[in-house]
Amino acid sequence: MKPASFEYRAPEQLDELLELLADDFTDVRVIAGGQSLVPMMNFRLSTPELLLDLRRVDELGALEHRPDGALSVGATVTQARLLRQLEQQGGWPVLAEGIRHIGHPQIRSRGTVCGSLAHHDPTAELPALAVALDARMTVAGPQGRRTVAAADFFTTYYETVLEPGELLAEVVFPAWPAARGWGFRELARRRGDFALVGAVATVDRDAAGATAEAVALVLFGVGERPVRLGGVEQALAGKPLDAAALASVEPLVAEAIDPVDDLHASADYRREIAVQLSVGALADAWERSSARV
């Protein structure tokens, strides 16, 4: 299990990197943490001709709060670094909780946030979190930069809208209202494994705190990409998320997803669990939310 031969560059300037990336005649891959890519290379399932390491490009390492309250996470920011920042400075608690479910410290210490997003394993936590939090993906390429909503970023298994020559330069998580409630539920075979099924939910209550003004619910491990359950979100908007309301959306969850069988669980099982985790995550989010200020 040794990787096939490749060339390696680690330029310091983003322009130079993008230029190398834009080479149409070479199979180029970018590497940041490599926690998904290197195993595939060791199995020789991925055999790029040129590997572009992002590590020396300083501007890709930024992790900063923007004036509008958003959090921008550059391409080389590790999951561990983001988690530490969130734990120390607060905000985006659902993101912190989700990251804690990624692998183990030995993986998070090298694996990057953007790397996981660009790799797009649909059973991974971060793509679903990005969708649930309406993250904006900054894509850099030969034509400059473009912004893609997380909801539009993930296409199918291990595929995104990234075109050849493009890379995910940063992900921006919009400001996190202090009163927002959140739920994160995941069922995995073992601690640290990719999810069989997972659910991310957020709830923003109205000013009176009596009903949910906005609800987000995103499932992962149930299809080719993170699945946002717009029908459920709409059905719950304007209501208190009590047991009756939650029970009423169960059929909507089951209908909205199209999971598949694999070694670890059947499609039927995933559907069944998706319903439970959805309800659980929504209930948690309701519980943790408070009146809008």
């Binding site: 390696y8 680690a10 590497i31 490599g34 926690q35 290197v38 195993p39 060791n42 590997l51 390491d53 590590r55 561990a80 410290p105 030995q106 993986i107 210490s109 090298r110």
Partner: peptide, 19 residues
Amino acid sequence: CTVLVDGAPQRSCLVFAAQ
């Protein structure tokens, strides 16, 4: 194969020496 790279525990089989 876990080693400490700049103080952090990492899988050395998932890192290229060049990195």
